[in-house]
Design a protein around this nucleic acid. Structure first.
Lengths: 100, 100
DNA sequence: TTGGTATATCGGGAAAAGTCGATATACATT
DNA sequence: AATGTATATCGACTTTTCCCGATATACCAA
């Protein structure tokens, strides 16, 4: 993954917020039936509601974050759950500490 | 400084390169008469030559990086020297480690 | 298999960023 | 004062990003 693409993914207010929400889902989202925040994350619909932006926009934003390895997804039935990608975030912090 | 603006500053190939160049100036720029890399950094002209982009573009890019607190400048005579801002970079790595 | 719900993809209009050449400003030298 | 050099700012054009509504796809339930 290109470094520029990682920073592009982060250079949008809503996408940054999504990442902060996903860091502590229980603080930002209602309980989910049949899906554990820790295991699978938060479903698109909840993120969309919280963001106030359209469904299509949020779906795209999530895939931008995923392409940047900042989050990853799990499909369960008709739902897609997204959660933080710890490794990707660690890698990013490493880039900043060692290359910039 | 807004977090989004920091990431925007970094979401451009040339600006990222400038930061990596400024991390080890002696590896990327010729010796400068009357100006120490460690003290003041590298002058705009040298950065511009190395980048291959126009003078006006590089001047703007440097001010974008400066507004994001990623570099800072020192004027000496007719030259402006830019160098890395260690504190700003540390703060950024901190944001990633604690907020995202 | 029909209809309902969740998410993804597509097409487009508006706003922002990338990048340039021209010009302005600041400083140094004669 | 006049000229030369380094950098900053301006105006314009092109490309990219933002964000939407409409549509497609995937899955589920009756």
């Amino acid at each position: 993954m290109d470094q520029v693409e990682i920073f592009k993914a982060l250079s949008n207010k809503t996408r940054l917020q999504i990442l902060t929400w996903l860091k502590e889902p229980e603080l930002h989202f209602p309980e989910q039936p049949n899906a554990d925040f820790e295991n699978v994350g938060v479903c698109v619909g909840q993120i969309q509601i919280k963001s106030g932006l359209s469904q299509s926009t949020i779906s795209e934003y999530l895939s931008i974050l995923q392409r940047a390895d900042l989050i990853n997804s799990t499909r369960v039935g008709q739902w897609t759950y997204y959660k933080r990608n710890k490794e990707g975030l660690k890698k990013l912090s490493n880039i900043i500490n060692t290359e910039l």
